[in-house]
């Protein structure tokens, strides 16, 4: 049961991370890279709940931190995404389960992810964070996340219903 839930969460995250670094970040879009990974984490949280969301966030951060070409401190993204996954799963209630509500939650989560990573990186003494480009990165990340949400969130719900129906939150 646990293993199957892990796979239902883990495999989409792995695919998302690969798509993110090989395709999305090479598109050369202005501002941030569309954060498919965060969108997937939030989708898991919305479909399964806060605990699974937190687990997904941890896993997603670990994947992006250890897989090339990352040179960030391992664990930074794990902490940030874990918090986002938990909060997204916790605050959502049935009244938010509309397309608009979903888009807002995902957009805010993406903004929180970029901002959170920048803050934690700065606290840890990374010389890289460019604070004057943080606003643009944060806003564009929220926008791209909002655009990805209507595709990813229903897909994750469908996947949960098919493969791990015991944890599906009723919408």
């Amino acid at each position: 049961m646990i293993v199957r839930q892990g796979l239902v969460i883990g495999i989409p995250l792995l695919l998302a991370s690969i798509i993110q670094v090989t395709l999305l970040s090479r598109l050369g879009l202005p501002g941030a890279t569309p954060d498919l990974l965060v969108v997937t984490v939030v989708a898991v949280a919305l479909a399964m709940g806060p605990v699974q969301g937190a687990f997904a966030g941890f896993l997603a951060g670990a994947i992006i931190d250890v897989s090339p070409p990352s040179d960030t401190v391992v664990g930074v993204n794990s902490i940030v995404y874990l918090a986002i996954g938990f909060v997204a799963g916790y605050i959502v209630d049935n009244r938010d389960r509309t397309v608009f509500g979903m888009i807002v939650i995902v957009g805010l989560s993406c903004a929180a992810a970029s901002l959170g990573t920048a803050i934690v990186d700065s606290i840890l003494g990374s010389p890289r964070v460019l604070w004057d480009s943080v606003p643009l990165i944060t806003l564009s990340s929220a926008l791209y996340g909002a655009l990805l949400a209507p595709a990813v969130v229903p897909f994750m719900e469908w996947l949960t219903k098919k493969l791990a129906p015991e944890v599906l939150l009723e919408g």
Binding site: V21, T33, D35, P68, T117, A118
Partner: peptide, 12 residues
């Protein structure tokens, strides 16, 4: 074959 996401601020 892959580029790090811009929000990591790392050009790798």
């Amino acid at each position: 074959i892959a580029v790090g996401p811009a929000q990591d601020y790392a050009w790798t």
